[in-house]
Design a protein around this nucleic acid. Structure first.
Lengths: 344, 344
DNA sequence: TTGAAAGCGCTAACAG
DNA sequence: CTGTTAGCGCTTTCAA
């Protein structure tokens, strides 16, 4: 009982027109007489006909698919980015293929290959190899191989890779945070979480030092605390390590992201400290986690909607050879909530 | 400077074999002499050739794609499910197409159509229309139309829809929670959040009443509190409404999911209550949010890895006409953390 | 084992 | 405005 598959030929025959005409009404790329058009459209509705995207992609130039690879969608930062990208893609008639590399190098390469096998029109990568301070040359080779045929955009950097960048201005973000803290009377400020081999983290640390110098505050190396990762546990672990090492408690802690902040807050609480009464905690990203946390986190964040839109629109320009800028920056803004105490 | 696209013909010509032979080594579906095989493989490596998935999907029976539609990937429940499904799909050689309907009916229908246009081999839907107590008949029609050609699996229910179900046993989950609370001496137990027109919520409420009766505790209608949605804000709002209405505070609150629990905990805290000293709060789902929350939430959860695997494997069986069971259940288990006080 | 050839369903010249 | 006709790149008979 094979259900006969219906195609533009089925429609064409029944409508008494050529398949090309059906195709024309489908794509809308050419004039078709009202009469034939409505006849065809009626048949399309009758059969609930949906053109085969594969065939379309095979014969036309575009597949109308954009591949998006993030490192882990469970992280609210990526989830938010993904949703905004998806919306923007849809609005522009593209379908977003969303994949998680889950911190595995092989997965990243594998998805790159899958994307190119699917002939996506463009690839966007957020997180993963593109976050590393020292770019993995073998990965760059992979990227460049596919960049040869498909535009690739990244949020991060990849030395020697032929791709477009849409970046967060980590420096500016740090500046906003530092300024805010200092203006509120904080002098003993720690920067907690993240790893030195991650570019965004390094950028933050550099600007952190720079801002301290600018305000004439001496840098205390023990106030720059490494985290093994960017999740809640590593935030908590970093805080505990700091406490164990018995340094004087800073008046404010800048967490490298919201997740880390949650871990820090938890560790602090478990040690009987109150936030922000005893210690202020602020962070980067302003994902919904910042709202969830107790107290709500003051942080610096981005306009995710705009970010996603910029990414997708840049991708589309690249697809159409309109040569968008190779590097673009998104601005950040401060969101003041309840996790920072005013000292003066 | 058009980069010439390389195909099985390119490879075939250079290897001195027919395209069919190249196809054979690609698919591995037929014997090819070692000699030609290695020659072809060398060329594939040389050109970094990746067969066009569109062409393959067009000519063969399967596209090796499975579409997954969730309502919102930012919700950790869906994010966790999606990641586990993606892993399981990959392990079985399938590519997962992940989409968010974001609570919009049109989006659900639109993605259904996109999936069928992409000729995915199967469709999985978690959340959205499939959660509703009274199934939307027009949506069911849509589902059935595509189910005609593509197996559809859902987590939830859809009356009259021709699809496979893999469900959580909400009743059992509630039972675990109630039993735990009662054994710990709780009698005044509220059930907070969720809406009555959502099947899973209704199932929980039914079993909640049933369990109270079983233990000879009288049901207090004011202890069943509606929530407008399933996010943090509605949890908080529900709690505040309850407080405003000035009911006696229960000794334990069951939140309809982790997000709701976070909102409830926050509202309680803001009112100066301590958890679990003053009120115990437990919840459903056991997403990572339960670990994040302060205190860590005791809740009932599922084996997400198994859940994802079951979903994907069922889909694959359906694809291959192996007639998997139409309805399957996943079991839940209790995870005891710090948010429940032992009263006796 | 291997090759030739016929599709898969659609788009895009090219004529008319 | 419309039909004819090539492909797009792969798989899969069918013969050899």
């Amino acid at each position: 009982m094979e259900k006969e598959t219906i195609s533009i030929y089925t429609i064409a025959k029944e409508a008494g027109v050529s398949p090309a005409t059906v195709s024309r009404v489908l794509t809308g790329n050419a004039k078709v007489s009202e009469e034939k058009k409505s006849k065809v459209e009626a048949l399309i509705r009758k059969y609930d006909f949906r053109p085969n995207a594969l065939a379309r992609g095979l014969s036309s130039v575009e597949t109308k698919m954009i591949g998006l690879m993030v490192s882990d969608i469970r992280n609210p930062f990526y989830a938010t980015m993904a949703v905004e990208c998806e919306k923007a893609a849809n609005e522009n008639g593209y379908l977003l293929l969303l994949c998680n590399s889950l911190g595995s190098n092989e997965m990243e390469v594998s998805y790159l290959e899958k994307f190119s096998g699917q002939r996506v029109d463009a690839i966007i990568q957020i997180g993963g190899k593109v976050d590393e301070l020292v770019s993995d040359t073998s990965y760059v080779e992979n990227i460049n191989r596919v960049a040869n045929t498909t535009p690739i955009l990244i949020t991060g950097k990849l030395d020697g890779a032929d791709c477009y960048q849409v970046n967060i201005d980590e420096g500016q973000s740090m500046e906003l945070l530092m300024q805010f803290l200092i203006e509120n009377g904080h002098q003993d400020i720690a920067l907690m979480g993240g790893r030195d081999n991650v570019k965004s983290t390094l950028d933050k640390r550099l600007r952190y030092r720079q801002m301290l110098r600018k305000y004439g505050i001496s840098v205390r190396e023990e106030y720059i605390v490494d985290g093994s990762s960017y999740d809640i546990e590593s935030g908590s672990a970093a805080m505990y390590r700091f406490i164990r090492e018995d340094h004087p408690m800073p008046s404010a802690i800048i967490a490298i992201n919201d997740f880390t902040a949650v871990g820090i807050v938890r560790a602090l609480r478990e040690q009987g400290m109150r936030i922000p009464e005893d210690v202020s905690v602020v962070s980067f990203d302003n994902t919904y986690i910042a709202e969830t946390c107790m107290p709500r986190l003051t942080c610096v964040g981005y306009d995710y909607k705009l970010f996603g839109k910029l990414l997708i629109e840049t991708a589309i320009k690249a697809i159409h050879n309109e040569e968008p800028p190779r590097v673009q920056m998104v601005k950040s803004g401060l969101v003041i909530r309840d996790s920072c105490k005013q000292l003066k």
